[in-house]
Structures are given as C-alpha cells and as structure tokens.
C-alpha cells in the first residue's frame, strides 16, 4: 500500500457567502505528482494555502507527513514547512534581494546552521538544477518571466523538501517555457523523489506531469483518476476540461 504524505478530510472554507471548499477529501501519495484541476476561482489556490497553513479552513482535517497542521503552533508549523516547499503562482521572489539572497533566505530563516561555504554550495546546486547558475548575483527584476519561475523553483528546492506544492506553475509563460517548466517538475521528482501537488488548468502541463488528477468541482473532489481515465470520461462536468 502506498504511503500517504498529505491526507485531507472534509475540508471546508467559505469567504462570506461564497463556499469555496465543501467537504473536500484528497490523498497525496509518496513519490507521485498529483494535479488538482479545476476552473479559475474554484478554490485550488485556497486548497494549497490551507495545506501550508497560510489560510485557516472552517472545518476539516489536513495531515501533512502525519501531523495535523491545523493543531500546530508556529514553531511546529515551521518544522513542517521545512519539509514542504511552495512554488507561488507569482513566483514571490524578493525584489530587494539578489538571486543568491533569495535562495539563502529560507536557509537562514529556518535557523539551519550552515557555514558560508555550505550555504553557497547549496545555492549553486539548486541553481544548477534549474540551469541558471550564472544568475546568482542578478536581481529578480533583471530576469525574464521564465527565468524567475526557475529561480523560484530553485528556492523551493534549497531545503530539499519531501513535498512540493506548485500553484499554477506555468501561468503566464509561453508554451515552450511552460513545457520546460513541466519537464523540470518531472526531473525534480525523479532526482529528489519528491511528492508534488500541482494546481493547474494548463492541460499540456497537466498531461506532462500528472500521475493522477483530482477534479475540484463545486468545492468537492469530484473525481480522481489518471489523465487517460478522465479524458475518456463522458461526464458533462469533466469532459470540457479535456476537449
């Protein structure tokens, strides 16, 4: 039986009268790429922000690596966050810092004791993984959209996480760069044996990275299956995504 690294049960979240998640259930298994597919505004980003503790849900249970993140204090939550990386939709690179400082930030902030040499080596290794070692002393503003996405990806890798949460990793990128990022997601999984939860509605990305797909429709996990299984579905709510 596959080990579950994220287990979500009965998750609900409303913003005023708008019920975004309604008793949502999902399991992410170790070593898989699971894509959550849904329309814009369907609550995909809310879901992963609940997982990482950025948004507090109204009801439900979220277990990450065996710990219920809703019951953790700040220190305990930080310990979980060392093992769970988050790639933000807008990259969230710190504008006032160089690429090196951006990558060193999580290392320093999680109070990881490292010599300057070790930190430098880790930064360079993370940048090598995304093919952008030469940008180490550049500012984010000097990079293209695709490069920024790669740097953001390198930052998620710096702590060697067990789980990576990708929030629309290819949004705003051209088709070629989107494919490169999708390929990179697979390379990272193969190299570091990470588990990934990918939020997307880019079907090329979905097809490239997904081992399984969970359909988020009307706030619920409407269906789960492989790309081929769901693409063959005749369900009127699933079919439009694959047409």
């Amino acid at each position: 039986m596959q080990e579950t690294v994220i287990n979500i049960e009965g998750l609900s979240k409303s913003f005023g009268a708008n019920k975004v998640l309604d008793h949502f259930d999902l399991q992410l298994h170790r070593g898989e790429n699971l894509v959550v597919l849904g329309k814009s505004g369907s609550g995909k980003s809310v879901l992963i922000k609940c997982i990482i503790g950025l948004i507090e849900p109204d009801h439900g249970k979220i277990q990450v690596l065996g710990k219920n993140v809703l019951n953790l204090n700040h220190v305990q939550l930080d310990q979980v966050r060392v093992k769970v990386a988050f790639l933000f939709q807008s990259n969230a690179l710190y504008d006032s810092m160089t690429v090196r400082e951006n990558l060193e930030f999580p290392l320093r902030r999680h109070s990881i004791q490292l010599s300057a040499g070790d930190a430098d080596q880790m930064v360079r290794e993370a940048l090598q993984n995304v093919g952008l070692e030469h940008t180490i002393d550049m500012m984010p503003v000097d990079l293209s959209g695709g490069m920024r996405k790669r740097i953001a990806l390198a930052r998620t890798l710096i702590l060697k996480p067990e789980i990576i949460l990708y929030d629309e990793p290819t949004t705003g990128l051209d088709p070629i760069t989107s494919q490169e990022i999708s390929a990179l997601i697979n390379q990272i999984r193969d190299k570091y044996q990470t588990s990934a939860l990918v939020i997307s509605h880019d079907m090329r990305c979905v097809k490239t990275v997904a081992h399984r797909i969970a359909m988020l429709i009307d706030g619920k996990c409407y269906a789960v299956g492989s790309y081929e299984e769901l693409a063959a579905s005749t369900d009127s709510k699933i079919k439009p995504f694959f047409d």
Binding site: I52, R81, V82, S90, A92, D95, R109, H110
Partner: peptide, 15 residues
C-alpha cells in the same frame, strides 16, 4: 509584496 505573494513566501520560509 502583498500582491506578489512575497509576504506569504516569507511566512512559509519560517519568518
């Protein structure tokens, strides 16, 4: 920083 999620990124970086 708020609209580009940098504040959220700080929080998940243990800050």
């Amino acid at each position: 920083m708020k609209v580009t999620e940098q504040i959220d990124a700080m929080e998940v970086s243990g800050t």
